[in-house]
Amino acid sequence: MSEKKTKRRDFLFTATYAVGAVGVGATVWPMIDQMNPDASVKALASTEVDVSAVNPGKTITVLWRGKPVFIRRRTQDEIAEARSVKLDDLKHPETDEDRAKNPEWLVMLGVCTHLGCVPLDQKGDYNGWFCPCHGSHYDTSGRIRKGPAPTNMEIPKYEFVDANTIKIG
């Protein structure tokens, strides 16, 4: 092969394969991409929630993009507990200040980062959440403290539209 010179025919083969590969790719991609979230699913991207009826120490769960979102109005004890934890003690270090801009309100995806179950409120070794599926314990800031989950529960994009309304997404 090494002594063989590149000929016109080799060029034609290579060019044919290249064009063929592009053609196959262009045909296969729509077949794959059709499985991704469609326009109607993406259209449900944001939800507004009225939180005026939520008292301190209560959690409400709302559905956003088919997933539960926990909105917890935390007590002063819970805030103090969450803010007193040293970052070195955390598996996934995040400060409570970053997770809850308004310390009274914790808004997070109620989805265990292990395999997607919904953790139970006010349970577990850290007074936060406990996932019944595979035993992950979360603290009052929704941070993973013990168990197989790799990261803290996710904080979605949200904002206070006014004092009583949270817009998620």
Binding site: I32, M35, N36, P37, D38, V41, R65, G66, K67
Partner: peptide
């Protein structure tokens, strides 16, 4: 996972596929 679900959670698109 999003691709498998066809959304942001297990839902109707997941069921049909």
């Amino acid at each position: 996972v999003t691709w498998l679900w066809g959304g942001y959670s297990v839902d109707n698109p997941t069921l049909t596929r």
